[in-house]
């Protein structure tokens, strides 16, 4: 962990130079400059869609800017050129109206497919209700009699006070750790019912591929199937007041049997948010990895 921070610190100078070289990706970690592929089929599809459209715009950009810079270098008065007189060409204008239209249709087809898929919340195997509050999240496992609130972890909360004097880099998972994680099973079709208690929030988990607004008085539905166990971190994405930046989301995706055990323990009133032996498995793992 400390090693990583040191490297990041050292990276400042390198990054500045890197920017001058138009941000050569080799200098930077891709996860710091591009969208995550995430851990669901939808997030992968969204990533692919993003890269496809990005590539198309880059190709068009190269064409347009290529022509523009060619013109800037060749067609300048200082080279003694005489300006041409032409001022329109119906044929050319029709081509560059119709051609973009065709490209757009090509983009719209896969986008429509993904959108239709994401909209279908049927056939879910379990449901979790998410409620946004100023400024924390509430989770309720529907029909399981398990519910709890999830707040910014204390060490981050202390460090983030104005002039706290604590270096954020010294706090593990600064601003993206919570006291109680949302524990979810992998390979399960989970429906989320998202709402809010006070103002509008937005529940955003980049690794699931989407965000959805939490609106007081209304319930928004969406779904996911997490494919890999792990700890995933997200944030509130809709401005919700003073501490909008301080209500992170942490999802811990575990195997189904582990999830069942966790759920049973919650129902029995066990220590919240921890695994069977009373320690937080994922955090313990992270500490180990850091050593």
């Amino acid at each position: 962990m400390t090693n990583m921070i040191a490297r990041r610190r050292f990276g400042h100078l390198g990054l500045l130079a890197g920017l001058m070289l138009l941000a050569t990706p080799a200098l930077a970690d891709f996860s710091l400059i591009n969208m995550t592929r995430g851990v669901t089929e939808s997030s992968q599809e969204i990533y692919d869609l993003h890269m496809t459209i990005f590539t198309i715009t880059v190709v068009i950009g190269l064409g347009v800017f290529g022509a523009m810079f060619y013109s800037i270098f060749r067609h300048r008065k200082s080279r003694g050129v005489k300006p041409a007189k032409f001022h329109h060409s119906t044929a050319v204008e029709i081509v560059w109206t119709v051609l973009p239209l065709v490209i757009l249709v090509g983009m719209a087809v896969p986008a429509t497919r993904v959108l239709i898929d994401l909209d279908d919340t049927s056939e879910s195997e379990m449901a979790v209700k998410i409620t946004g509050y100023q400024w924390f999240w509430g989770y309720e496992y529907m029909g399981e009699d398990v519910q709890f609130l999830s707040r910014l972890a204390t060490d981050s909360d202390v460090a983030r006070q104005l002039d706290s004097g604590i270096n954020p880099a010294s706090v593990p998972n600064y601003l993206q750790n919570v006291d109680r994680r949302l524990v979810l099973p992998v390979d399960t079709r989970i429906k989320f019912q998202i709402t809010a208690a006070d103002v509008i929030h937005s529940w955003w988990m980049p690794d699931l591929g989407w965000k959805k607004d939490a609106i007081p008085g209304f319930v928004n539905e969406t779904w996911t199937v997490i494919e890999e166990p792990g700890v995933y971190r997200g944030r509130c994405a809709e401005l919700c007041g003073r501490d909008h930046g301080f209500m992170p989301i942490v999802v811990e995706a575990v195997e189904r049997d582990e999830y069942e055990a966790w759920l049973a323990e919650q129902q029995a009133g066990g220590e919240p948010g921890t695994t069977a032996d009373g320690t937080d498995a994922a955090e313990a793992g992270e500490e180990l990895a850091a050593r």
Partner: peptide, 9 residues
């Protein structure tokens, strides 16, 4: 871009 093209900039 077409306006720039073959102008005398």
């Amino acid at each position: 871009v077409a306006t720039m093209w073959r102008g005398a900039m």
